[in-house]
Simulated assay, not measured.
Amino acid sequence: MAGLVNFKDPEEVKEYLSNTEIEFMFGCHKEKDADCCYRLGEFLETIRKKFPEAATTYKECCDKYKNAPCCFKVGQYHMLGKGGLEKSELEAFKYYRSACQQEKYRDQGKNDRLATACCNMALLLQQETVEETEKPVQSRILEALQKSCALNDAVGCNVLSYFYMKGFEDLKPNLRLAAKYAEKSCELGDYRGCHNISLMHARGDGVEKSYERAKSFSEKKEKLMNQSTSLSFGN
């Protein structure tokens, strides 16, 4: 167990990591456990720094088990051209879509990756860098963003708010829904959502006109921006 390891002893740490890797490999390859495959991929990526092996593990996990976290990671690798995988927005889109098609999990960590995959899929469609033929593109984008936001992805909520604010192809502007999603984005920690909902309260767009509410959201925006700057500079 991790609590019994003397992490100041290089040999004990080496043995512990070796045993951990073996455990994940057994769970993935022998027991066919998708979660173990994902953990093996993370281990190879973050501990061993063996990115090609991590990419292969994630890809096999996604292809075999349709595991959303694994599919999300393959999408990320294709976006970056990492681990020997081709840098390709089309391939990234395919794996983001595969992740987004999975059902909600009980584990929030898995849902976070599922939600981000849905958001990334929608953004690639919106940028017209890939083609989608399953349904009208607008429908696919909105479905993906709605799922992303429902799973508490701040960026997904913010983009969804933007579409309802400005309108999108056949979708007419709906300021009430734009405000709803902007506020949720803000609550989830996206300062852009806080900025938008603050302005909407200041103007009375889709919500009651309220100086107090506008000020409150503006202050939260500033707080989130300052936190982001502090993290960036390591303060």
Rank of each mutant, 00 (worst) to 15 (best):
Y181E: 03
G109P: 04
S185H: 07
F93Q: 00
K104E: 13
A179E: 02
V5A: 03
S232V: 02
T116Q: 12
E31Q: 13
G83R: 00
T20C: 10
K73A: 11
A68W: 01
K73M: 15
M79K: 11
Y16A: 14
T57E: 00
Q108C: 05
D112N: 12
I197S: 00
Q101A: 11
E134Q: 06
D190W: 08
E187I: 11
C119N: 09
E86I: 06
Y105I: 01
K172G: 08
E134P: 00
I197W: 00
P69A: 09
K209V: 10
R140P: 00
Q146C: 04
S98F: 01
N196I: 09
T116L: 14
G41Y: 01
D153M: 09
L17T: 01
T57K: 05
T129K: 15
K135C: 01
L175Q: 12
I22N: 10
S210K: 06
A214P: 01
V74P: 01
E131D: 06
Q76V: 13
A178R: 05
K221T: 01
N6P: 06
S216R: 05
S216I: 04
Y38V: 05
L175S: 10
G204S: 10
Y191H: 10
L142W: 02
G193E: 03
D205I: 08
E89M: 02
R48K: 14
E53A: 11
C118S: 08
M25T: 11
T57A: 04
N226R: 14
D153S: 08
D112R: 15
E23F: 14
F51P: 01
R106D: 15
L145D: 01
S230G: 02
L17P: 02
I197N: 00
K184I: 11
P173W: 09
P173E: 07
G167S: 10
E219K: 13
K223E: 15
L17I: 04
V159S: 04
E12P: 07
S18Q: 15
C70L: 05
R203I: 13
K73C: 04
C37A: 15
A54L: 06
Y38C: 10
G189A: 12
S185K: 03
G27D: 10
H78C: 04
A54V: 04
G41T: 03
K94C: 00
K8A: 05
N158T: 11
L231N: 14
H201V: 04
K172A: 13
N67C: 03
K82S: 13
E60K: 13
C62N: 06
C100N: 05
G206A: 14
E12A: 15
R106E: 10
A178L: 08
Y65S: 09
C62I: 06
S88H: 08
C36D: 11
H201E: 09
S216M: 10
L188S: 06
E53D: 14
C119Y: 05
